[in-house]
Design a protein around this nucleic acid. Structure first.
Length: 408
RNA sequence: CGGGCUGUGGUAUAACGGUAUUACGCAUGGCUGGGGGUCAUGUAACCCGGGUUCAACUCCCGGCAGCCCGACCA
């Protein structure tokens, strides 16, 4: 993409109404636009990152057996009354609105009911199970207090997968598979080294749920981490009996602030029973479906990556989710060579952000490249010998000259 | 939802009960041309409503909005 085609602009000033580093950088670099507290529009650069994160998650979900679909955002009152989660007294962060015809609808704040309800139409036999549908979707929560930029929004983009299994054993097998898939997602987006499997309260159907907590001071959870094993417990279950059960020594744990970038939990029959979601087993008797829930907030995850990997100059994107691999800077008289290199790289399939602005100084272009954070900066300028290009990694200070042909 | 702080050009800010400051951006032109360069000219603002006052961006009340702390986070 040519910079002159990209309508967003970078900003030097820190937004006055953002204290969170992730929002500050994403706004200054032009990845997102703040609509209101807790609500952000994804601008062209931001959407490219979002799409890459989505593709990684989709890949991992599909590999684990997931099947993608898309549930509606508008949800009907009837469905949620089945599980007693329509009332504002029970769920206080619903966004609700009215139909012209008089009925009430809610905007999805989670998906359990939607899936349970839908699947009653399609599941009737043990031959129909297990199934693992999931979707990517915007979710709405009327938070009393959104905060920390992208980390806690009122509207956010997530992936939710639900497992529908015949037995506890079948459920557990998949649950373990998802743990691995999540591990892989966080590794691939570049924060695996800071993300820990964390035991949290499990509700009525299992003792624990599992969270994936990324350690960052910007987080809002407190976890107790055993650095040896990489296992953590959420503050909410930090008790002697729990530690004993998990084989953790209290003295070995360190307290950390972290953000929950993913969570998985067993739902048992909490939702399948109210919807009559059952199947007939081999003997013809009705059995409730065993469910599990697996969520990842993509917008939050992106915010966490920025919090964890940025430096004083700007964002440092991991290759896998960077908006572009190359940030090509062309200075003054090298315009023609720049155009050719850009065209050649794109033709070869590379993703390139080409700073072709004719009226910007070198300093400004370099500062923007650092702020935007693509992994590789390529420079063509007065110091660059013919046939060569300066190659600099975002994570390194010095650049080196390489032959243009080395770039493919 | 409780508490605190804050609302001034596109962005970031200053002052003042009486003509609204500066920087960035943007526009035009010149000089520049490898880490946000420089000169000139221009452009653009007091959140909304009410009150006090001769006069309110400024003080008071209410609303709305933003940030922070706490509560909450299915």
């Amino acid at each position: 993409m040519r910079f002159t085609h990209l309508f967003t602009k970078t900003r030097k000033e820190v937004p006055a109404d953002e204290a969170a580093r992730n929002a500050e950088l994403l706004i200054r670099a032009g990845f997102v636009f703040k609509e209101m507290a807790g609500v952000y529009t994804f601008l062209p650069l931001g959407l490219r990152v979002l799409n890459k994160v989505e593709a990684i998650i989709r890949d991992e979900m599909n590999k684990a057996g997931g099947i993608e679909m898309r549930t509606s955002v508008l949800q009907s009152k009837d469905v949620w009354e089945r599980t007693d989660r329509w009332s504002d007294d029970v769920v206080d962060n619903w966004f609700k609105t009215k139909l012209k015809t008089g009925g009430e609808v809610g905007l999805s704040f989670t998906n359990e009911e939607a899936y349970s309800n839908i699947l009653t139409q399609y599941v009737s036999s043990y031959k129909d199970l297990p199934i693992y549908p999931y979707d990517f979707k915007s979710i709405f929560r009327n938070e009393a207090r959104s905060k920390s930029g992208m980390l806690r929004g009122r509207e956010f983009y997530w992936k939710a997968l639900y497992s529908f299994s015949k037995t506890d054993a079948e459920h557990t097998e998949f649950y373990e598979k998802m743990k691995a898939a999540y591990r892989s997602v966080f590794d691939r987006v570049g924060i695996g080294h800071r993300t820990y499997l964390t035991f949290a309260s499990g509700g009525s159907f299992s003792k624990f749920s599992h969270e994936f907590q990324a350690v960052t001071p910007a987080g809002e959870d407190t976890i107790y981490l055993d650095e040896q094993s990489g296992i953590a417990v959420n503050k909410e279950v930090h008790a002697d009996e729990v530690l004993a059960e998990l084989g953790l020594q209290r003295d070995a744990l360190v307290e950390r602030t972290a953000i929950e970038v993913g969570n998985i939990f067993s739902l048992g029959t909490r939702f399948s029973v109210p919807f009559g979601l059952e199947y007939q087993d081999e003997h013809g008797s009705a059995q409730p479906v065993i469910m599990g829930s697996y969520g990842i907030g993509l917008s939050r995850l992106i915010g966490a990556v920025v919090e964890i990997l940025s430096d004083e100059k700007g964002i440092v994107w991991p290759q896998a989710i960077a908006p572009f691999t190359y940030h090509l800077v062309v200075l003054g008289e090298k315009r023609e060579e720049g155009d050719k290199l850009y065209t050649d790289l794109v033709a070869a399939g590379a993703e390139v952000l080409y700073d072709d602005r004719p009226d910007k100084s070198a300093g400004e272009k370099f500062a923007d490249a650092d702020l935007i954070g693509c992994p590789v900066r390529l420079t063509l300028g007065g110091k660059t010998e013919a046939g060569k290009v300066e190659y600099k990694l975002r994570t390194e200070r010095e650049s080196r000259l390489i032959a243009v042909s080395e770039l493919r």
